[in-house]
């Protein structure tokens, strides 16, 4: 199968997948296709989406591919769907999430050490929202649970993988307030 033949098939599959579909999954569905061709077709398709100035975009999210609307058109879509953006996470939950995202796997006492406040409720909220998940236990006294971010976190925050987070050192400059 040529790359040109492959592109529309991949597009159809990515469209139908309810969650970002990974290259692995695509390769399983298309065992007759050479892996290098698959890669090339995906990349060509992605570039076409980028170049065409359409209302849809093809993005890499959580290690998979997803077709979604471009953010700049959300107003029109919300008019049709009659929805509003969902409520934001509390500052406590966001801070806790940031600490977990950068220091994972991390225990509750370690989170509290950094934030300077009790963070049990924030952790519970994040667990309920499935943004974080337990990642085993730390082999120290009390064997506290280690937390890390989930796949849902990557999807909700539009990240392909954790390496897309800006390095925490970058914030040193940004944040150093005062004079």
């Amino acid at each position: 199968m040529t790359i040109e033949e492959l592109k529309p098939i991949l597009e159809a599959l990515i469209f139908v997948a309810s969650e970002p579909i990974t290259e692995e999954e695509l390769a399983q569905i298309l065992p007759e296709v050479d892996r290098a061709n698959l890669d090339a077709a995906l990349e060509a398709l992605r570039q076409e989406y980028e170049a065409n100035g359409r209302g849809l975009e093809l993005r890499r999210i959580a290690g998979g591919y997803r077709i979604s609307t471009r953010p700049e058109y959300h107003d029109y879509i919300r008019r049709y769907l009659k929805t509003r953006p969902s409520a934001r996470l509390s500052m406590a939950a966001l801070e806790t999430l940031a600490v977990i995202a950068y220091k994972q796997p991390i225990t509750l006492p370690e989170i509290q050490e950094i934030r300077g406040v009790n963070s049990a409720r924030a952790v519970k909220t994040l667990l309920e929202k499935r943004l974080i998940e337990p990642k085993g236990r730390k082999p120290v006294v009390g064997r506290p649970i280690l937390y890390g971010t989930s796949r849902e976190f990557l999807i909700q925050f539009g990240l392909n993988d954790l390496s897309e987070l800006p390095t925490i050192e970058d914030f040193e400059e940004l944040g150093s307030g005062g004079s």
């Binding site: 469209f15 139908v16 309810s18 997803r66 077709i67 979604s68 609307t69 471009r70 953010p71 700049e72 959300h74 879509i77 769907l81 953006p85 969902s86 934001r88 996470l89 500052m91 966001l94 801070e95 999430l97 940031a98 600490v99 995202a101 950068y102 950094i114 934030r115 300077g116 909700q156 925050f157 539009g158 990240l159 987070l165 800006p166 925490i168 914030f171 040193e172 940004l174 944040g175 150093s176 307030g177």
Partner: peptide, 29 residues
């Protein structure tokens, strides 16, 4: 300083989430 870094990171995370809230995938099949 450490706390401030994570506070800034939290803001950045939120701006990312905000962008994602403006993104829609196809309706349910």
């Amino acid at each position: 300083l450490e706390y401030q870094r994570y506070k800034t990171a939290a803001e950045l995370l939120w701006s990312k989430a905000e962008r994602e809230q403006a993104v829609f995938t196809r309706g349910r099949l």
